[in-house]
Amino acid sequence: MKILVIQQKMIGDVLTSSILFKVIKDEIPNAELHYLINTHTFSVVDNNPFIDKFIYFTKEAESSKKELFKLAKSIRKEKFDVVIDVYSKLSSNIITLFSGAKTKISYHKFYTTSIYTHNVKRHKTASTKAGLAIENRLLLLEPLGIKIATAQPKIYLKEEEITNAKTFLEKNNIHLNKPIYMVSVLGSGLRKTYPFEYMAEVIDTIANQTKGSILFNYIPNQLTEAETVFNLCKPETKKHIKFDVFGKSLREFLAITSHCTAVIGNEGGAINMAKALNINTFAIFSPWIDTATWGTFESNHHINVHLKDYKPELYANKAEKEMKNESLELYKIFKPAFFTDKLKTFLN
Rank of each mutant, 00 (worst) to 15 (best):
E160P: 04
F297T: 00
T112F: 05
P336A: 09
K65H: 07
M10F: 12
K171P: 00
L307R: 03
Q8P: 00
L157V: 10
Y87F: 15
K166Q: 15
K275S: 09
I84A: 04
K59R: 13
Y156V: 03
N221K: 14
S17V: 07
L328P: 09
V185K: 00
A61V: 02
P220K: 13
I241V: 09
F21G: 04
I241C: 04
E142A: 11
L215A: 07
A270G: 03
K2R: 14
F196C: 11
K192I: 04
E159M: 10
D290M: 07
K22D: 11
V245T: 10
N93W: 09
T167Q: 14
V82A: 06
K192Y: 07
P220R: 11
S327F: 02
N221A: 07
K89Q: 13
V14T: 11
L254D: 01
K332V: 06
L141Y: 08
D26Q: 14
R122L: 08
F339L: 06
K73Y: 15
L4A: 06
E170R: 11
S91P: 03
F110P: 00
V263G: 01
I115F: 05
K9V: 02
K171S: 14
K192S: 07
N164W: 03
K192L: 07
T58W: 05
G131I: 01
T125Y: 10
T41R: 00
F230R: 09
A149H: 09
S184Y: 03
T237F: 02
K242L: 11
T113S: 14
H306Y: 01
V229M: 05
K53A: 10
K102I: 07
T16A: 12
S184R: 03
I303L: 04
N348K: 13
K2A: 03
A61K: 00
A319S: 14
A255N: 03
L347D: 07
K342C: 03
P287T: 09
A72V: 08
T261D: 13
N47I: 06
P336Q: 07
W288Q: 02
T167W: 04
K65A: 12
K192N: 11
T112A: 12
R76A: 10
E252K: 07
K2D: 02
V82S: 01
V86L: 05
N177Q: 13
N30G: 14
E135T: 00
K239I: 07
Y218V: 09
T112I: 12
K211H: 14
N208V: 05
T41E: 03
D13F: 04
N48C: 09
E159H: 08
N266L: 04
L15G: 00
N280D: 14
L250H: 08
K211N: 15
K318D: 07
L330D: 06
P220D: 11
Y107W: 11
V229D: 02
T167C: 08
K66R: 12
Q152A: 11
Y116W: 11
D52H: 08
K147F: 08
G295S: 06
S327H: 02
K124I: 06
K147T: 10
L176F: 05
V183M: 10
N38D: 14
A276G: 08
I214V: 10
E159P: 00
N208D: 13
P179S: 10
